[in-house]
Design a protein around this nucleic acid. Sequence first.
DNA 1: GTCTGAAGCCTAGTGTTACTAGGTATAACT
DNA 2: AGTTATACCTAGTAACACTAGGCTTCAGAC
Lengths: 104, 104
Amino acid sequence: MLKGHLDAVLLATIGDEALHGYAIIEAIRARSGGHFDLPEGTIYPALHRLELAGLLASRWVQPDGGRKRRVYALTDGGRQSLVERRAGWQSFASGIDLVLGARA
Amino acid sequence: MLKGHLDAVLLATIGDEALHGYAIIEAIRARSGGHFDLPEGTIYPALHRLELAGLLASRWVQPDGGRKRRVYALTDGGRQSLVERRAGWQSFASGIDLVLGARA
DNA sequence: GTCTGAAGCCTAGTGTTACTAGGTATAACT
DNA sequence: AGTTATACCTAGTAACACTAGGCTTCAGAC
């Protein structure tokens, strides 16, 4: 449960790499130290939503051996949005920290 | 928008003080350094939900001058839940930090 | 050679959450 | 008398991420 921060997580995970959906799930699991193991039903609709919003662009890729993949990359708007969302997260987290008296 | 952490914020804000709804809003605004200014339509239903869940107990108080207030205090279960939610928040926040590459 | 599991994509439906947008009442100040 | 702050409440709603399915392709086991 990413609680409203899924978009930031997706944008940050894709970063400059251009990943496909299945790889994004694995990357999030790895980069979060196992904290987040997102089901496909969570990320695919989110990727579509972000593409519709113009933050991601996708293309189909046929690798040598293996089946076709849909690969996502950040658009300029996506990079911009990532910067904003990162700042938003830091602001949000520091607010919660203050109230909870944790890490403050 | 507290994104799933509203309950933790409410429990932490009430703490050992026994506050009424309106005062909780002000306390959250003050303790969060202005980050969070929650509308009443957010906190009253949440307080009811937490009371129904057995984490809060309320009683009506008639102060000298001024109108009646419904005052909320943590139950034992609420204190227990607060401990768990604080830990949950720290775990969640560190996961997001890792993925976003912020504060990590 | 077929069967199983992993890789890979997808959607419909659902429950939770916190929001908006109202309503009501009392007390203090002007 | 009217406004503002205090104080409580609810119905309806939109967003979000989840569950629970379905589909295809490829590699390896038996």
